[in-house]
Design a protein around this nucleic acid. Structure first.
Lengths: 203, 203, 203, 203
DNA sequence: AATGAATGAGGGTTCATTCAT
DNA sequence: TATGAATGAACCCTCATTCAT
C-alpha cells in the first residue's frame, strides 16, 4: 500500500461522501418541490438519488433535517445574493429595495424548485414555517424601526406587524409567481411588490 | 308554539345526531388549532368528543372533510360578519375597509382557535390552503381592479398580485396576533393593516 | 278501542312484519346476486329494503342467516319444482332426468338472481358452500347407488364420487349459463348436461 | 467453482430476501388451506412466517397478491407435471387422459394443502375463482372441440359447456378427496373420473 | 461508507351488531 | 315493532428508522 494509494483511498470516499450528500439534497429538493414534505418518503429520496435507503440516514438525522437544510441553505444563499446586489445602495433607499427585489425575482426564476420548497410548501411543517419567518422577519423589523424613526413610514405602522405583513406578502407573491411565471412579467412583480412596500405617510 | 312546530324543528334522534356532530366539530377545532391537521388523528378527535372512533366516520367522510368544514364555515361566517359590518359604507371607501378590518379583528379575538385552524395551520394541507386562497383572493382582485380603474391605486400595481399580497399579509398578521394578542392592541393591528393596504399613488 | 280497532292494530303490524321480512329477503337476494356475500353489508340490505339498520336484526340473527335462508329456500323450492316435474316418470329413467333438468333450467331462466346467489357465489362462504353440497349430494349418491346395482352405471364408478362430480358439474354449468344466457340455448344446455350424466358402461 | 460463479448465483442479502418470501408463501399456503382467504389476515401470515407485519408488504402488494401467486404457481406446476406425465401418449387418447389424471391425483396426495387453497377455497374470491376457471377451461374446450370433430364425443355435447362441467367436476372431486383421502383410494378416484369423462356417443 | 431487508407502531377506515328511544 | 345513532374491535397498509452484512 503506497502513500499514493493511501491518499486515493482516503480522499476518494470523502469525495464520494459529499457527492452522495449532494445527490440526496438534489433529489430531495426536486421531490419536495413537486409533492411537498409529507408526500415524499425518505426511501423515495434515496432511490431517486441512486443510493440505498439506509444511506439517507448516514447523511441526515431524519427527513426533517434534510428539509431544514434545503430551506436554510436557500435562505442564506438568497440573503447573500441580495446583500451583494444591494451592496452599492444606501440602506433602505428605493434603489436598495429595488435591487434586492430584483435579485429575489432573478433567483426565483432560476430556482423555481427551491422557492416552491421554501415558500410554497414551507407551511407544511409548522415548525419550519415558523423558523423561516424567524429568519426573515427580524431584519425587516429592524429596517422598519429605523425607517419609522426617520419619518419614512406612516406613524401608525407598528414595525413588528409590518415585518410580518411584508414577509408574508413577499413569500406568497413569490410562490404564486413561480407556480406559473407566465402570470406576470418579472418587472410587473417587481413594481407591484415595490409599490406595496410600506412607505411614507400618505395624504 | 304548536306541537307541529316542535316536531318539525328537530326530532329527538336528530337533536342527538346534531349534538354529536357539533361535539366532533368542537373537539376537532380545538385539536387542529393546538396541533395542526397532521398531528391530530380522527380517533383522537372522537375520543376528545366523547364518542367512539367509528362515530367520527358517521359524520365525516374523513379527517380532511372535518377540517375543510371547519375552514369554510369560518370563512363564510367571517365574510357574513364583515358584510354586515361594512354594510353602511361605500364599497372600497376608507370607512368600509376600516369596518371590515375591525370586524375581522373582533372575530379573531373571539375565536382565536378558529383563526389558528384556518390561517395559522391551513397551509399544512396544500389543497386546502389553495382553496382558502381561492375563497379570499378573487374578491380582493375585483376590488383592486375597480380601484385601479378609478385611479385610487398606483398604476404600476397589478391587481392579481396585489390580491395575493393582501390576502397573505392579512392572514399572516392575524395568525401572528392571535398567537399572542398581547403583542399588539387591536387598534394597532387595525391601523397597521389599514396603513399597509394598497392605495393611491405616492410621491 | 273497539274490537275492530283491536283487530286492526294487532294484525296490521303482523302483516307489516312479514312484509318487512320479505322486503329484506328480496333486497338481500338482489344485492347478494349482484355483489356477493362479502361485498354487501347488512346496513345496505336494510336501506335497500327501505327499513332501518336495526330492523334487519329483528328478523335475522345476522347476515349469514339471511344468506342461508335465501339459499335453502331456493334449494327446497327447486327440489319441489323438480319433484313435481318428474312426478310422472320412473325414478332414474332418461325421461325422469330430462324432466328434472328442464325444470332446473326453466327455474334458472326465471330466477337468474337466485341461481347466482346459491351457485354462483355460494363458494364465498365455505360453510354454506359445504351445506349446499350436503343438500344436493346425498340424493344423487342414493340414485347412483341404485343405478349401479341395476347395472346402469359403469362398474368402476364410485357413487360417492360421482355424486360430488355431478353436483359440481350441474351447479357450475348453471352458474356459467345464467351469467350470460346467450352463451347457449336452453336446449343445448339440457342436452349437454344429459349427455354428460354418468350412465351405462361404454365400449 | 469460481468466486464469480458463487457471487452470481446469489449474494447473501438476496438469499435472505428469497428465504423470507418463501417463508411467507409457506405460511400463507398453510393458513389459506386451513381457513380460507377471508379468515386469514396478512398480519397472521407474517407472524406465522416469523416476520413483522410490514415485511409482508415488502414482498406482496397485498393479501390477494400472495393468494394469487400461490394459486397460479400451483396451476402452472400442475400443468407442467401433467404435460410431462402425458408426454408419450397421443393427445386426447385414453392413455393420455389416464396419465394426466394419475399425475393430478399424485400431486393432490403430495400437496393436499395446495389443492385445498386452489380448488377448495378458490371460490372465496370471485375474481380469482374466475381466473382459475379461465386457466383451466380453454384447454379443455379445445380438446372437446377436436374430439367432437373426430366423432369421439356425443354430437349433442357443446364443448364450451362440457369444458365448464369437466373443470368443475374434476376440481370438486379433488377437493372432496383431499379433505379426507380415506374416502376413496387413488385408483377409485382415477377410474371414476375417467369413467365420467365425456366420450363417444352411447346407445 | 453503503446496503437494503426488516421492523412495528400507528394511522385511516369499515361494519356487524347493539340499544336507547 | 321499528329506528338509526353509536360502538369498538379488527383490518389493511405505510413508512420512518434500524441494523446485520
Amino acid at each position: 500500500m503506497s502513500f499514493a494509494e493511501g491518499n486515493v483511498s482516503s480522499t476518494a470516499p470523502a469525495r464520494s461522501r459529499e457527492d452522495t450528500r449532494r445527490r440526496l439534497v438534489e433529489a430531495g429538493t426536486a421531490l419536495f418541490a413537486a409533492e411537498g414534505l409529507h408526500a415524499v418518503t425518505s426511501a423515495r429520496i434515496a432511490r431517486s438519488a441512486g443510493v440505498a435507503t439506509g444511506t439517507f440516514y448516514l447523511h441526515f438525522k431524519d427527513k426533517q433535517e434534510l428539509f431544514r437544510e434545503i430551506v436554510f441553505t436557500v435562505l442564506s444563499e438568497l440573503r447573500e445574493r441580495q446583500d451583494r446586489a444591494s451592496g452599492g445602495h444606501e440602506d433602505g433607499s428605493r434603489a436598495f429595495l429595488r435591487a434586492r427585489t430584483e435579485e429575489l425575482l432573478a433567483f426565483a426564476e432560476d430556482r423555481r424548485d427551491l422557492i416552491r420548497v421554501v415558500f410554497g410548501r414551507g407551511g407544511e411543517s409548522a415548525t419550519i414555517g415558523e423558523e423561516v419567518m424567524d429568519a426573515i422577519v427580524p431584519g425587516l423589523e429592524r429596517a422598519f424601526d429605523s425607517r419609522l424613526a426617520q419619518g419614512e413610514l406612516a406613524r401608525e405602522v407598528l414595525p413588528a406587524i409590518a415585518a410580518q405583513a411584508v414577509a408574508a406578502m413577499t413569500t406568497r407573491v413569490l410562490a404564486w409567481w413561480v407556480e406559473d411565471p407566465s402570470r406576470a412579467s418579472r418587472e410587473e412583480v417587481t413594481q407591484t411588490l415595490l409599490a406595496l412596500h410600506p412607505s411614507r405617510p400618505q395624504r
